[in-house]
């Protein structure tokens, strides 16, 4: 392992962490909304959130490219007003990882929120608590294991993302190349030994994250 190799591992872990942090607030909000009652547009939102799970990642990447490219509606606005370039930078990596890991966080956290006894939330209301206090003092603490499990799964998913990342962030060594993309490069170049080392690192982190997630969602306090 050279310094360059460690840079790739560190960069990938950092991007995955950033992506996880980025999806945390909207992911928890979405999970909570989807766990509550019925409201118009719920099924549509549910489907949209879960879509990246089943859509080919390259397709998701292509859609993001369209959206965030300089000619795309969001990308154009960002470039013209803020002079921010997304595509083919580290920002694109974070966005690709975030979009791909969001469904795992939302689905896991949603189940956890649904399991919270509604009577406890109502009890909190009778004790004068407003909706935000109910959420932060009762709902979230009671669902914390499931939410953590979802965060770990999302992180693990982000670490291994390939298709969407390549589409929107490309493969610029030292700038946008992640672990998975590097493995692809190495195999293309016939450097199988190094590819296996990277694969081992990738698999170990994923294994630990999923194992921890399983433990959290199974054991109930």
């Amino acid at each position: 392992m050279t310094g360059e190799d460690w840079q790739i591992v560190g960069f990938t872990a950092g991007m995955a962490l950033l992506a996880t942090l980025l999806v945390l607030p909207p992911g928890i909000l979405l999970a909570w909304l989807l766990a509550r009652g019925r409201w118009p547009g719920k099924t549509l939102l549910e489907t949209l959130v879960s879509l990246p799970l089943v859509l080919p990642p390259v397709v998701t990447g292509l859609l993001l490219l369209r959206l965030l490219g300089r000619k795309g509606p969001v990308g154009k606005w960002l470039w013209e007003t803020q002079e921010i370039e997304i595509v083919f930078t580290w920002k694109a990596v974070v966005i690709a990882l975030a979009v791909m890991s969001l469904p795992l966080l939302v689905r896991t956290a949603r189940t956890a929120f649904e399991e919270v006894d509604g009577q406890l939330e109502q009890q909190a209301r009778t004790l004068g608590a407003g909706e935000s206090r109910v959420f932060f003092s009762v709902t979230l603490p009671l669902a914390r294991r499931g939410v953590w499990a979802g965060v770990l799964l999302a992180f693990a998913r982000a670490l291994g993302e390939f298709g969407a990342t390549v589409m929107i962030a490309g493969n610029i060594p030292g700038e946008t190349t992640t672990l998975s993309v590097a493995i692809y490069n190495l195999v293309q170049l016939g450097q199988d030994d190094k590819a296996w080392t990277f694969a081992g690192i990738s698999a170990s982190i994923a294994f630990l994250a999923v194992a921890a997630s399983e433990r959290l969602s199974r054991r109930r306090s």
Binding site: Q123, R125, T126, G128, A129
Partner: peptide
């Protein structure tokens, strides 16, 4: 409920 000041 939170404004009724009841003890349930």
């Amino acid at each position: 409920a939170r404004q009724r000041r009841i003890g349930l």
